[in-house]
Amino acid sequence: MDSRNADVAARTLSVPVLIVLGWLVPGFGHLLLGRRLRALVFAVVILVSFIVGIALQGELILPRAGEPLSYLAAVASIGNGVLFVVARLLGLGDGVVTASSFEYGTSFLLMSGMMNLLLLLDIHDIGVGKKEW
């Protein structure tokens, strides 16, 4: 059932474009490749993780001068794609260091971003035919 849709997506969109779309909207890359169930599950998991992270007053970490690890954390934060941009535009994700849930919230936000980045590798593998399902 999936291969036909995948073929359509592969004909119309190149793998790099699928990866960019998958990064922007969690699960969208898999949807374009015809993996509907997996796309839905990934989108829900990442969205829930992101919302919980914001609700717990976590921080969407950006690079900070003199803190090399913040660069890695920023990659994970930006990995959230459109969610990151929307949250920033709404003034969310600044983090409240004094909140008891701050560390948990930040952890959820980093987790959702890293999950989305992992999905990009999966999109690549499916797109180039390394992964059949």
Partner: peptide
């Protein structure tokens, strides 16, 4: 939510994610 509930939620999300990924 207490810390244990958050831990369980995080474990749940991670387990679902990797089960469907791999």
């Amino acid at each position: 939510m207490d810390h244990f509930a958050l831990l369980v939620l995080q474990a749940l999300l991670i387990a679902v994610f990797f089960a469907f990924l791999w």
